[in-house]
């Protein structure tokens, strides 16, 4: 049945929607995790202490992470493609 033939949305690389790209500054990070918790696209992962990885394949560049970061450890910059 067609219903059973399914895959995940991981095939859909939404990174292409982006205009601004987040840049992460490790030295400013206090490891509060708000960037991870507030990401609409499940694109920010905590790798280890104060180490966050932004998956640019899916990051749509909304900028919530940067806006919510209490220490401005994420900056949104115009992406050159």
């Amino acid at each position: 049945m067609l219903i059973l033939r399914q895959k995940t949305t991981l095939v859909n690389k939404t990174g292409g929607w982006r205009t601004f790209v987040p840049k992460f500054y490790k030295e400013k990070c206090i490891d509060c995790g708000s960037c991870h918790l507030y990401c609409p696209d499940s694109a920010i992962k905590r790798i280890s202490e104060r180490e966050y990885e932004i998956n640019l394949d899916y990051c749509k560049g909304c900028g919530i992470c940067s806006n919510e970061c209490p220490t401005k450890a994420i900056e949104m910059i115009l992406e050159e493609k």
Partner: peptide, 22 residues
């Protein structure tokens, strides 16, 4: 809550900055 893998995957087509997906 930070280390858990997401069970709601990336690649969905919600608008940028969507509150509901969060």
């Amino acid at each position: 809550y930070l280390v858990k893998d997401d069970l709601f995957l990336s690649g969905h087509r919600a608008c940028q900055g969507c509150g509901a997906t969060i």
